[in-house]
């Protein structure tokens, strides 16, 4: 196990390093940072002066190494626009994103796993087809569209926006101007209801389908037949003997989904005006606030890596056969 962990950690570090290099290159090659910083009307001299001021006139490799060594010392630099330390900008918004991601994953799993089990037990019946329909709808519905529909239904049509805590930014739906509540101020749990529903809808289908597939396979297995032959109750057969074997791929998938939620809730955070990391990323990309974007990218990549590692450890805990490998 120690060996397994060491190997995995080394790989994780290499992946993080690669992400930082690729991210740095892509971000820097996509536009001239100095020109943006100097402003629209800046002359060539202004741009050159700005470049020199921010150290942008150095070779790209030198700039990267500079960034890397600072990052390793815990200094992620300052925002080019607000001049706040990047580390504080991110950590102050992390709780919002993490709450959102975990709540969405929790409710997604809460619906997906029982539904997947039910679909497997009632395979090829109308219950199964109904579950498939729900999954396909959930999978096919774009996040931003579903979010807007929720806002429209609860905020405009039903006028329950404040009750459900939807804080509307300046959003246009189908050409209609919605002026909602201000963005600033602390979010209460009510503000999370609709974003969590949106993201849970996104998480649920794949997990439900993979639960169903796993359960179908396991329900036909010899050890489930043994469990029945032991006279165990249907609940014990299903949830103790079958589900624990079927859940292994679900754990891996859930880890990837959680990583996606942590980075991918950019759109949902923006639409619901939740001031999380996703929203910060969105704003920073718009402003080409390079240090912020680069840091968010690397932090999210690291969280992905950690989650995958965590999934492997959970699987090793669930299935003794994994531990030997």
């Amino acid at each position: 196990m120690a060996n397994f962990l060491t190997r995995r950690l080394i790989i994780a570090l290499l992946v993080a390093l690669t992400v930082s290099i690729v991210g740095f290159s892509l971000l820097r090659l996509s536009g001239d940072l100095a020109a943006v910083l100097a402003g629209e009307d800046a002359s060539a001299e202004d741009i050159a002066r700005t470049a020199a001021q921010y150290g942008l006139d150095r070779h790209l490799i030198v700039q990267y190494l500079d960034w890397l060594f600072n990052a390793l010392r815990g200094n992620l630099g300052q925002s080019l626009f607000t001049h706040e330390p990047v580390w504080e900008m991110i950590t102050s918004r992390l709780p919002v994103t993490i709450t959102l991601a975990f709540a969405a994953l929790f409710f997604g799993l809460l619906i997906a796993i029982p539904l997947g089990v039910l679909a497997a037990v009632k395979a090829n019946t109308w219950t199964d087809r109904g579950a498939l329909f729900v999954a396909v709808m959930g999978q096919a519905t774009p996040n931003f569209w579903f979010a807007l529909i929720l806002i429209y239904v609860f905020g405009v049509w039903w006028r329950q926006a404040t009750i459900l805590g939807v804080r509307l930014a300046e959003i246009k739906i189908f050409g209609m101007q919605l002026s909602g509540l201000p963005i600033s101020g602390g979010a209460t749990w009510l503000h999370y209801v609709l974003p969590v529903v949106t993201l849970a809808t996104f998480v649920m289908p794949a997990i439900m389908r993979i639960t169903r597939t796993g359960m179908m396979e396991v329900l036909n297995s010899d050890y489930v037949r043994t469990a029945r032959a032991k006279g165990l109750s249907p609940g014990k057969v299903l949830f103790k003997h079958a589900l624990r074997n079927a859940i292994l791929p679900v754990v891996s998938l859930a880890a990837v989904q959680l990583g996606f939620l942590l980075s991918g809730s950019v759109i949902v955070e923006s639409i619901f005006a939740l001031n999380g990391v996703g929203y910060l990323a969105f704003e920073s990309i718009k402003r080409i606030d390079f240090p912020v974007v680069q840091s968010i990218l690397v932090i999210l990549a690291c969280s992905y890596i950690l989650l995958t590692l965590l999934a492997d450890i959970i699987n090793a805990k669930l299935d003794p056969r994994v531990r030997l490998e």
Partner: peptide
């Protein structure tokens, strides 16, 4: 309880986890 059953393949008839 009162009727026991033993199956062909002991490799797969016991729950691995």
């Amino acid at each position: 309880n009162r009727i026991g059953m033993i199956f062909q393949d002991p490799m797969t008839s016991l729950n691995p986890v």
